[in-house]
Each structure stands twice: as C-alpha cells, then as structure tokens.
Design a binder for these strands. Structure first.
Lengths: 341, 341
DNA sequence: ATATTTTACGCAATCGATTGTAATTTTAAA
DNA sequence: TTTAAAATTACAATCGATTGCGTAAAATAT
C-alpha cells in the first residue's frame, strides 16, 4: 500500500497563513474563532481532504471514545444480537466498538481484557466465559478506572453495572407452564453451576416445583447438559430410566432442547403428547422444528441497547456507591412442543 | 467513574532514575538496553501496574493496528461467522477489530467508512450493502492509502483485494443436481441484480439449464425474493401458475428457501417428491427443517480467516499492480429437500 | 479622542511513546 | 597503560491535536 502523507491541521494552517490552534478550534466549532475564518478553514480542510487523526485527538483528551466488548463467541445468535444492539446505540454517539471473543476460555478472556485496557477503552462490556474461576482481571479493569458493564453471564460477587435477565422468573414461568399443562415428572437439563445464570434457572425450576407441590426427584436433573450433544446424551439417560420424565426443561439453551427433540424422535416418543420440551433463548430455529419448540425470549438486541444506554447514562456520574443492576424480564414463548391436545 | 492517573514510562523512569527512552526500549525488548536494567524495568513496570498507552504508541508509529469491518448486519449468521473468522486471525497478531453495521443502507455505509478513515484504521474490510449504487466512498478509502478488502458482496468495478465465493460454480452445481435428480421445471428466486453475487448465481442457474438443454422459462424466475416473506410470496405465485415448477432454487438464501418450504407445506405439496427445494448459505436451521434443506455452504469462518490472512500478506507489499482476488469454492450440501426416492 | 471591554488569534506546553543521534561507560585489544 | 571498539544510556525531536494563557486588534463605552 502506498504511503500517503495525510493532511494535518498544520497543513491547513500553513496554507492559510494562520496557526494550527485556530484550525483546531474551527474544526471543533469553537466560538473563539471568527465565523469567516471558520468557514475558510472548513473549506480548505475539505479541499485538502483532511481527516482528523483520532489517535492524536484522543491522546490529548485522555479518552478513546471506544468501548470494548468481550463475549465467548461472536457468531452465536444471542451474543451477535446483543452486540448489534450495542452498536446501534453507540454508533450514533460517535463511539466505536472493539470486539473480542474469549472462546469460553478463561486465559484468553484475561488476554482480551488486558488488550482492551491497553487500548484505553472507555468501557469494557463483558459476558464471562463458562470456565471463569476468578475475576481478578475484572477487578483490574475497575482499578484502571475503566467502566465495566457485565451482561447476562455475570460475576455476581463483583460490584459493577450489570444488565441481566430475570432467569429465576423466566424458568419459574416455563416450568409452571409445563405443570399446568399436566406434565407430572419434569426433567431438568442444567448448565455449569459456576455461572449464575444457570444457577438461577435451576432455582426457578425448583421454585415452580415447590409451588405446585411437585416432589423434586434428583435423578431427573442432569448436570452440564449445555450443548446439543450433551443434551441428547442426557435425554437418552433420562428416557431410559425405569420411571422416565414426561417433560424436559432444557434450561441451558435451545440447542440442548433440539438434542432432546431429536432423541425423542429417534426413540419414537411423541412430542408433545408423551414428552413436553421447553428450551431457552429463542434461537431462530426453535420456531421451525416440528413440533416448534417452546422457549424463552431474552430480547437480546434490546439487551444490547440497554447496555449502551447504561454506559452513556453513567458517564460523568461519580456516585458509584450503588452499582446499578438492570434486570430484563424475558418472555415465555409457548409453541408446539408443550401444547398437549 | 473515578479519574485514575495511569502510570507512564516516565513514572517508571523517574522511579529508577533513568530516561524514558530506556524504559521504552526495554518494554519493546530492544537489544540496545542492558539485560539487568531491562529486568529491573520490567519488574517496576509490573509493580506500578503499567499498561502501555497504545494511542500514544500508534500515533508515534503512524499506524493503528486496527482493522475496520463494515457489514450490513452483525447479527446475521454469515456475517457474524466471517467476523469471527477475521477476529481469530487478527487477535493473534495484536490487531483490533472495529465493527460497524451499515444496515443495508447506502448512506449509513458511507458514514461508517468515513468513521473508519477518521480512526486511521490500517485496513477496511467491507461487504457492501444491497442498495449501494456508487462506490465513491470506497475509492476514498484507497485515496487515503488505506488497504481495502471486499468480501462476498463486492463492487466488481473497483480494483481492490477481494475474497469471494465462486457463486457461478456453486449455483451451477446446485441446479445440475436438481436436473440430474429428475426435476424438469426449475424455478429461480433471485436477489437484487445490482449485487454481483446474485447476478452470478443467476448466471450459474442459466449455465446449468443450457448445459442440460432445459429451456429457460421467464415466468419461472422471480425477482427480488431475498427474504423469507418475499420467498414465500414468490413461491405462491410460482405454484399457482398453470404450469408450475417442480423444483425451486432459492438462490438468495436459506431464509427464502424456508419460505418456499412453508408455502409448500401449507398447500399440501410434498417435498421433495412433488417439489424440490435448494437454498443458499447453509444457515444452521437448514439442517433441522423437515425435510432438511439442500443448500450451499460458503465456509464463512474460513472466509474470514482468508480475509485476515490476505491483509497480513499484503502488508508492506508495494506491488499493487494486480489486486488479488481469492475465490473460495462453496460446497453443495445435499439434504432431504431434493432427495427423491 | 481616550479608555475599556470583547473578540480573535498566536504561542507554547501537553498527552505518552518512539527513535535518531550524541554522549558516556564498559569491554576488549594493542 | 593507552586506545579503539562496542555496549548502554541520555537527550531531544517527533507524531497530530488540544487548550490555557497572553496579546493584538476591533468594538464599545466614556
């Protein structure tokens, strides 16, 4: 690529026989510079195809107008939606997004966070990876005076801004819906319990059972079933029990719910009449399986919007005594997989 | 957020009674500085929780180590996969990604590109929006000496690096497959013809018909059917023709193929025996519809990798006489929707 | 016409890291 | 012991934009 010398404010100043400071002021529309000269400067800037060097500007101003985002995977529906939602809001305000993926790996997550600290981003938005075991790196963000916003998968013990889903309530509603539909033995596919979201979803499950006086049967709860494959595996186990469940709440994701559905189909078990299935996250495919899968919508794009707005709202707010937590109420979407005649 | 004074190389230098230049050299592991002092500097840097200010560094070095990406939508499978693929490669090399979405809007696309030029990114990676009618903004990128890489949806007339799919070949294979499967009247759902990818897909369709001596019937070609809804609409039209098609190639996407499938189901037309369906892009859902949809995989993550690698390969390459075009051969994935007994 | 207030612009330091060159120290050779 | 060569380190300019402070010029008041 050819090396092009880009025009600077000095070039403009030289051409007009004035100082760079006036040019800078003009470009920032300062009232300290005469309207006539301002116009002249603008015109010449345009002629010389001037583009402000944001690096220099930000260095001087001690900001970066940049927000760093760390997610386990960019190409996962939920996360890409949240990112899209963030971008929507931040773009308007002239902020840029730097995106990193941790790949569900604690070490890489630490690296990503450090990179972003190096970049002097104004804010780091993160959804922690599944195998995160400590949060020193996040504390480090705060120690550098960088705003930190956690969303969805959050480290609860860390006092930061958070945007979360009301997982307990959502799960509670989902399981209640199953019970009210006449299902008696409800299996649970649960996710890694070090992530609070999965703990909360289990909590909602238990809460619903309790309310309806349904006994908790330990053998109906399958640990760590959070992919399609693990969901399928768990389902095989559950369905071959002497006393198998008549419904399964795949609390981890629609992917594991899909695993459930496929195993049921293979085993010739009819959904929803013999087995009810409920997933989580309203992945696009959940609508088009047969039967379609009952699931929970998390309003992911809206969640992204909320994260961005929270950031802007907190800019310049020095009262950090009470870190805000915004909880979004997800919505149960009832579909074929739980609709008994 | 509390204002924290971050430690600089000057702080380190002062503490050790040496100059900042030595500190800088030490941090860059220059051979010009004594091993002992180097260690000492490293240790103190660590103690003071030093983080290099990339803004200053890049300003001085006249680079940004940043790549800007502009796509119509982040939260669309194909694009989020490509981005994930780019990130994978660039992260290792210490490059950051700034992501923008044009929202399929020409004006916003121009804005995005200008923002990235302002940011002094080292490279802009773009897949143009569907309603782009001129490419002055892209020319502008080149004029600023910024590397430009187009992928998938490219402006052909612009001489830049490109990473594309061999759309003609892929479509040709898909339609050939349909013909060989015994389908005689093959409808085409085509996309906006100002995008070369859609033109090429049509070209592949026509090429296959010609090769097998199947006459081209104009009424079987539906324009601008590139969403699920438009695909469904087009299908209704096609299927209510006096002489309807016995197969439909939804060349725009799997979404429109899904529209076809749903209409066929509603009208009680059996897939694949009475109607064959082929989509494009291998969206995750195409595997789990019933029947599953035959489609074309574009190796999107790999495409992202390729884009990144192309960039790194071209760094410092001054020979811009022949802009490279890398074509990736997509793969036809044959599934239930075209498998006649 | 003189004094005073505004307005507009220039000067120079600054943000933090890098790097060419000069100065100093250390090491090795004579 | 002297000297040349090599290794370290210091000095100072630089990247491009911003901004506090000072001053000249213009506008207003006396």
């Amino acid at each position: 690529m050819k090396k092009v010398k880009r025009t600077t404010i000095y070039d403009i100043a030289a051409k007009l026989g004035i100082t760079a400071s006036s040019v800078s002021r003009a470009l920032n529309n300062s009232s300290q510079v005469n309207e006539k000269t301002k116009e002249l400067i603008m015109k010449t800037a345009d002629e010389l195809n001037y583009k402000r060097n944001i690096l220099a500007s930000n260095l001087r101003k001690g900001q970066s107008k940049t927000i760093g985002v760390v997610v386990p995977r960019i190409n996962q529906n939920f996360f890409s939606n949240v990112i899209a939602g963030i971008e929507e809001m931040t773009y308007q305000k002239g902020y840029n997004l730097i995106i990193c993926q941790s790949g569900e790996d604690h070490e890489k997550e630490i690296q990503c966070v450090n990179t972003l600290i190096n970049q002097h981003v104004d804010c780091i938005v993160i959804s922690v990876s599944a195998d995160s075991y400590d949060y020193q790196h996040l504390q480090n963000v705060l120690d550098h005076g960088i705003q930190l916003i956690q969303f969805d998968r959050v480290a609860e013990e860390l006092e930061t801004l958070k945007v979360i889903n009301d997982n307990v309530q959502a799960s509670f509603e989902a399981v209640s819906h199953l019970i009210e539909g006449g299902y008696k033995r409800i299996g649970l596919l649960e996710g890694p319990q070090n992530l609070s979201i999965f703990k909360q979803r289990k909590e909602g499950y238990l809460k619903a059972l309790q309310l309806y006086n349904v006994p908790v049967v330990e053998e109906l709860i399958v640990e760590n079933a959070w992919t399609k494959e693990l969901g399928a595996e768990g389902t095989r186990k559950l369905l071959s029990l002497p006393h198998p469940p008549d419904a399964i709440f795949a609390s981890t994701s629609d992917f594991s719910a899909l695993g459930v559905l496929e195993v049921a189909n293979l085993m010739g078990i009819k959904v929803p009449s013999e087995l009810g299935i409920c997933g989580y996250a309203n992945e696009s495919f959940s609508e088009i399986t047969s039967p379609s899968i009952t699931t929970i919508d998390q309003f992911s794009v809206y969640m992204g919007n909320t994260v961005a707005n929270l950031f802007f709202q907190e800019i310049g707010n020095t009262d950090t005594t009470k870190p805000k937590i915004i909880s979004i109420k997800p919505e149960l979407i009832i579909r074929g997989s739980t609709k008994r005649k």
